[in-house]
C-alpha cells in the first residue's frame, strides 16, 4: 500500500480505496460502490455481497462544467467532470493539464495521483484526471 499521511478519520477510513482505486461490485446488479465498502447496493437497493474490484485508471466523461468562481485554493477556469471509470464506478473528477476548450462529453480520461489539497499543513492525495495520453497526443 502506498503510504499516505491522512491524519483525520474521514480520510483514514477510505485511505486504501482512495490511494489504489479499489471499488466494490454488487453481486446482484454489478453496480460498483466507491470509495466506501457497503452492505446495501444503492442502485438495486438490496442487501448484497460485494466483490472487491481493482478499478483501472481510465474513464469517459459523462458531463462537465468549467468552474470560473471558486474559493481560495483553486486555479480557475477549472474543468470538472462526471466520469464513468471503465468497468468501475461513476466519480466526480477534477481535471488537470487540460484546457477548458478541450473538454467534450465522451472524451477519454486517465486518473493521476496528485496532491489534492492541504489540510493543517499535510498534503492530502487523491486522483485528478487528464485527457488520456494515447488520444491527446
Amino acid at each position: 500500500m502506498i503510504l499516505v499521511i491522512m491524519h483525520k478519520p474521514p480520510q483514514w477510513r477510505i485511505a486504501r480505496e482512495n490511494a489504489r482505486l479499489i471499488g466494490y461490485r454488487c453481486k446482484h446488479c454489478g453496480f460498483v460502490e466507491f470509495p466506501e465498502p457497503r452492505k446495501i447496493c444503492k442502485r438495486c437497493r438490496k442487501p448484497s455481497e460485494f466483490a472487491e474490484l481493482q478499478m483501472q485508471p481510465y474513464g469517459r466523461v459523462i458531463s462537465f462544467v468549467v468552474q470560473h468562481r471558486l474559493p481560495e485554493g483553486f486555479e480557475t477556469p477549472l474543468p470538472l467532470a462526471v466520469i464513468d471509470l471503465e468497468g468501475g464506478a461513476r466519480v466526480y473528477g477534477q481535471m488537470t493539464e487540460c484546457k477548458p476548450d478541450e473538454m467534450k462529453i465522451g472524451m477519454s480520461v486517465e486518473a493521476e495521483y496528485r496532491i489534492f489539497y492541504d489540510d493543517d499543513g499535510l498534503h492530502i492525495y487523491s486522483y485528478k484526471f487528464r485527457p488520456r495520453r494515447s488520444e491527446s497526443m
Binding site: Q11, I14, N18, F34, P35, Q67, R69, L70, P71, G73, F74, L78, L80, V91, Y92, Q94, F116, Y117, D119, I124, S126
Partner: peptide, 12 residues
C-alpha cells in the same frame, strides 16, 4: 466544496 476527496472537490 473544498475539503472533500470523492464527494466532489470544487463542485458548487
Amino acid at each position: 466544496a473544498v475539503k472533500q476527496l470523492w464527494g466532489g472537490r470544487g463542485v458548487t
